[in-house]
């Protein structure tokens, strides 16, 4: 079963009179439970593809399905709901809502989903333990290191048990040891919980840990 299917996906940005083709006729199938790295130089279209997969951006042409639902046919409200329930995000930086503590950031998504109070707290604590943050639950983002913040972001992304976690250069701001630890942790979650991970990177260490690499260059899939 395909988790994500992409057909002839094209995204052209227009600024004033200049058109920049960020993605061109990309076809891609991602099966459930994959652990994929989108790799390529800056400007190759990695972030654009991730944003499109997450329903944050709209393709200029082409179609894409997540869990057999076509994103292009969904309203803004349905897209928001899709992001809330089926997709988790981890960004390069500024990942967390700054006014909420670590555990609250994790709970936030479940709260929006309407998960019952006690259940929410139990799952948040469990997932924070999974990412190795026991004891730091009540710190606010400003009081956590970069690596710890990314762990909270991962915890938040997976706690709702989404079909897909999208991570845009999750290790870019981390040192190599912290970055490797984060990747190992994501890989473990992928294996134990069966969550699909798609992340972009140009870090060799990250690529080594991916099970499948999709190379992008100038907006096209080259391998």
């Amino acid at each position: 079963m395909h988790n994500v299917r992409v057909e002839k996906l094209t995204r052209i940005y227009r600024q004033d009179s200049i058109a920049v083709t960020a993605l061109k006729d990309v076809d891609l199938d991602i099966a459930a439970g994959e652990f994929i790295a989108l790799v390529g130089p800056s400007g190759s279209g990695k972030s654009t593809l991730l944003n499109l997969l997450g329903g944050l951006d709209h393709p200029t042409s082409g179609r894409l399905w997540v869990e057999d639902r076509e994103l292009g046919a969904m309203s803004a409200r349905e897209l928001a709901d899709m992001r809330l329930r089926r997709i988790g995000f981890v960004f390069q930086e500024y990942n967390l809502i700054p006014v909420l503590s670590a555990i609250e950031n994790v709970e936030y998504v479940m709260l929006l989903q309407g998960v019952a109070d006690q259940e929410r707290r139990r799952r948040a604590l469990a997932v924070l333990a999974d990412v190795g943050l026991t004891g730091l639950e009540h710190r606010r983002p400003g009081e956590l290191s970069g690596g710890q913040q990314q762990r909270v972001a991962v915890a938040r992304a997976i706690v709702a048990e989404p079909a897909l976690v999208l991570a845009d250069e999750p290790t870019a701001n981390l040192d190599s040891v912290t970055g490797a630890a984060l990747m190992d942790m994501m890989r473990r979650l992928n294996e134990t919980k069966g969550i699909t991970f798609v992340f972009s990177t140009h870090d060799q260490m990250v690529m080594e840990r991916a099970r499948r690499l999709v190379h992008l260059k100038d907006g096209r899939v080259v391998i």
Binding site: A76, A80, R85, I97, Y108, L112
Partner: peptide, 9 residues
Amino acid sequence: LQLALGTQS
């Protein structure tokens, strides 16, 4: 960020 996480407008 909140929008990306699925928060409604």
